[in-house]
Design a protein around this nucleic acid. Structure first.
Lengths: 345, 345
DNA sequence: TTGTAAGCGTTATCAG
DNA sequence: CTGATAACGCTTACAA
């Protein structure tokens, strides 16, 4: 049995109240008693029971995180950022993945609700309504990758339309005519926005979008999409709706001996850490993933502490990150090798 | 204020005890009352308070995970596996990173101790003594990447020596003579074992090891090490003690126009998912990272449930994964391109 | 400054 | 089968 505050009190010959006060450095204890109690507590290696504490204090010092998946560097970066924020606010991190299932998400949210002081949630679903319903707004709610402002306190979103627009525009400017798009899942808002951005850039350029293939944001689906493309005449470029799928494409292309960017250009979205290390380095829309995670955690903690912060949606516009994979300069026929040397990865 | 069991009891016109029984489907309730209570509870959207529950039940349904870092795909995979295991055992996951600091690790462990039913810990420190001391064995303890069996219930380790030995042996067999080694941090047991394995393979082959550079398992240190190597005459091959550093090396080499494997061979350790997608695909020692995470979680849960399982250390031997980066076949002078096409990534 | 005692929300024991 | 009621470990009025 673990040592309780009562054991400490007994050993220190004081009441439990005094121990509690000494431990939580309330001002109403003599320095002497405090030291005495602290020494005993330390000797007994006393650690207050978290559950009891949260029951009494009505707070858990924990923030819950629900993510749709844990595969790959995107989530790895996000979690890293969340940990940074939580740690600096002295909060624990309760992590859960919904695996893209609404039912699992709702279940996880319900289960978490009573164990956390705040929630940071990213779901692939259109808006925060379901999430909010499951959470009942019992605790502060921060939504990730959502523009919803009605059902949460703060949401973080990236301007997927603008990001995709800029990447597509860049590819067009580089002289690519037939640009295929590997989209994300149909029911994912972000994926839809990226597709819209892709189309908008073509509209603006007065150019018809190339083939549009359905993916699911996972690398394998990018691989599959590229394989489909390889079956017939190749387009000039492929724009994958995220980096993971772009990596899948790259892999498929290489395995067939198709060289990027010489034979075909390639671009992704997210700028996960590996993107700049691929061969060729990947042109993409840069999203500060870890930074968003950190801010989301910070923000959630501020909310928990009742600090007045600006509610609503924090939109960040992805930065176009041009690397060698997007290929030929418009107008010039510079050798690919020279190009890949010139562009700083 | 959240709705409590008392609110449900009042609304259902029964005692709290009955509500509790109905909710935890104890056999001693009429089907009728159970249904009645359940309906009311659902209508009120009642969720039992985790803290109170854990106080009363003396269990938290949570397993704590302490990792030295969260950077990169290695930890991402590990966490994914842990989540898989935790989820299937209906446990929550409390995640924390020690950032390589002993003091942080100890603090995190103490803080977690009272909030979890079991612990899965990976630290860069030699043995489990510190960890065990911090945990006081209050809960089951599973150690990751440690061979310690004295201070924990179960530990998972990989045979770093054998893994490195095999990679080095492979490089030697491929005809590489001067093989540089980029090591991990000096105080890391795993890193030391890999270095020993590297040396042992050379000893067996009657060949002198090449230059040994100090790294820290992070990509940047691999980059730096390769830069050092680039400053003087290049070795025939570089063996980095993990994939992240190998990626850093690859990056540095490419930026100087050095081609892998044509100009120099390269190998890593871990087989993180990206390894097979690099250009060239990376030869490495394959460690089933996610699987180990899943098993560790499973195992921790079994321990929590008092199931009798085999204690001690579960050692897994990394599998040599040969890909194009390790370069020329011993004796043959096959063109690199042909090679990279032949070897299945 | 310190101690006593009343919660916090559940579950479990023990009568009815 | 159901209802009081006593834990569980901690914090915090309220008293002394």
């Amino acid at each position: 049995m673990a040592v309780t505050i009562r054991d400490v009190a007994r050993a220190a010959q004081v009441s439990v109240a005094t121990v509690s006060r000494a431990l939580n450095d309330s001002q109403t204890v003599t320095d002497e008693t405090r030291k005495h109690v602290l020494r005993i507590a330390h000797a007994l290696d006393f650690v207050p029971h978290g559950g009891a504490r949260s029951l009494s204090l009505r707070r858990t010092d924990t923030i819950g995180v629900l993510l749709p998946d844990l595969h790959g560097e995107y989530f790895s970066e996000l979690i890293r950022g969340l940990d940074l924020g939580a740690r600096s606010g002295r909060q624990h991190l309760l992590l859960s993945a919904s695996h893209g299932e609404v039912s699992e998400a709702v279940a996880a949210l319900r289960a978490m609700r009573s164990r956390v002081d705040g929630l940071v949630v990213m779901t692939p679903f259109a808006d925060g309504e379901l999430v909010a319903a499951a959470v009942k707004r019992a605790v502060p709610l921060v939504l990730l990758n959502s523009r919803d402002t009605a059902h949460c306190d703060v949401s973080f979103a990236i301007d997927n339309h603008a990001g995709a627009f800029n990447v597509a525009k860049h590819l067009i400017a580089r002289g690519h005519r037939r640009i295929a798009f590997v989209s994300g899942p149909a029911d994912n808002v972000e994926a839809r926005d990226r597709l819209r951005g892709f189309k908008a850039a073509h509209r603006e350029a007065g150019q018809a979008p190339g083939r549009i293939l359905r993916g699911n944001f996972r690398e394998e689906s990018g691989f599959a999409a590229a394989c489909q493309l390889l079956a017939s005449e190749l387009p000039d470029a492929i724009f994958a709706a995220n980096d993971a799928m772009a990596i899948g494409c790259l892999h498929a292309l290489k395995s067939e001996g198709v060289q990027v960017p010489r034979d075909i250009a390639l671009a992704g979205f997210d700028d996960i850490p590996i993107a700049r290390l691929l061969d060729p380095p990947l042109t993409t829309a840069g999203v500060p993933i870890a930074e968003i995670g950190r801010q989301a955690a910070d923000c959630c903690i501020d909310l928990i502490r009742g600090k007045k912060i600006e509610t609503g949606c924090r939109l960040s516009v992805p930065e176009l990150v041009i690397r060698a994979s997007s290929g030929r300069q418009s107008g010039t026929g510079a050798a690919p090798s020279a190009q890949s040397r010139r562009i700083r990865p």
